[in-house]
């Protein structure tokens, strides 16, 4: 991480607890512009809490959180950040809105109150749909699309306001294994070609590590924060530290016949 480029996201000594129960301890995290960070951790590791802190929905007990160099408390430039929530996919699938209408929502904050969608905004919506490869689906009802396609729609909604940082919270939950790979491919492309900094929060260590440039392992405190290559070579040790016992991570061998194993793995993790 070069010192001359300001970190997109920086956490220093962040501490947080619900009542007296500590959830996050002494978190140091820095996301350089143009990187693709995978933040992994088991259920209950504090990932969601960290998300809420980053988005200013919760306030840290100690430490500082900076977004583009500005402390989160005084950060107002939310258009620079796109966010795809874990809950994005749990909308009512009978909702009679088209893909185009859903992606348009991503611009509403930017357009502001008392103003309307203009031609240039409509063009941007189509541009965002083109980026995720769903241009032809713009007139389709959102509920008619598959889980993987819906996930892309929500990415497009986050991209349409042209954010510099895109935060994705468990975006692959409920998406079938084939679509997950395609989805990560898309993220990698956005990161490389569009220069969008990505923060991917997930419990799915397997597939993710083929795509991200950096990894951070979270379980109450950060167990690892560095380049992906380094993470992979120390994976077993990392896993033990994070989960408190040996975990065998099922490697992705790009053989599509083994997806059932992968699901089992996800589930066994989720139980803990």
């Amino acid at each position: 991480m070069s010192a001359d480029r300001e970190a997109v996201l920086e956490l220093q000594g962040v501490q947080f607890g619900y009542s007296s129960r500590p959830v996050l301890e002494d978190i140091q995290l820095s996301v350089a512009p143009g990187s693709f960070l995978g933040l992994v951790g088991p259920n209950g590791s504090g990932k969601s809490t960290l998300m809420k802190l980053l988005l200013g929905l919760l306030e840290a007990d100690e430490g500082t959180i900076k977004l583009f160099g500005t402390p989160v408390q005084s950060f107002r430039d939310w258009n620079r950040i796109g966010f795809v929530s874990q809950k994005a996919g749990s909308f009512n699938s009978g909702f009679p809105a088209t893909v185009f209408e859903v992606v348009s929502m991503g611009l509403y904050g930017k357009i502001g109150l008392f103003r309307f969608m203009k031609k240039k905004h409509k063009n941007r919506v189509m541009e965002a749909l083109r980026l995720v490869g769903l241009e032809e689906y713009s007139g389709r009802q959102i509920g008619m699309l598959s889980g993987g396609q819906q996930q892309r729609v929500f990415i497009a909604r986050a991209l349409v306001s042209e954010p510099e940082l895109l935060i994705l919270d468990e975006p692959t939950v409920g998406v079938d294994a084939d679509s997950v790979r395609n989805f990560y491919e898309l993220l990698k492309e956005l990161n490389r070609n569009k220069g969008i900094t990505l923060l991917l929060v997930t419990h799915d260590i397997g597939a993710m590590s083929d795509y991200v440039t950096d990894v951070a392992c979270l379980n109450k405190c950060l167990h690892f924060h560095g380049a992906t290559g380094e993470f992979i070579s120390n994976k077993d040790e990392m896993m033990r530290a994070m989960y408190g016992h040996d975990v065998s991570v099922i490697e992705h061998n790009h053989d599509h016949g083994h997806h059932d194993h992968h699901h089992d793995h996800d589930r066994s993790e989720a139980v803990k």
Partner: peptide, 22 residues
């Protein structure tokens, strides 16, 4: 008419609507 887009966003996805400053 004035608040169409905000009401639409809130109806579809309240969490995200709030995050975008509505």
């Amino acid at each position: 008419l004035l608040f169409y887009k905000e009401l639409f966003f809130l109806s579809f996805d309240e969490e995200q609507a709030v995050l975008s400053g509505i």
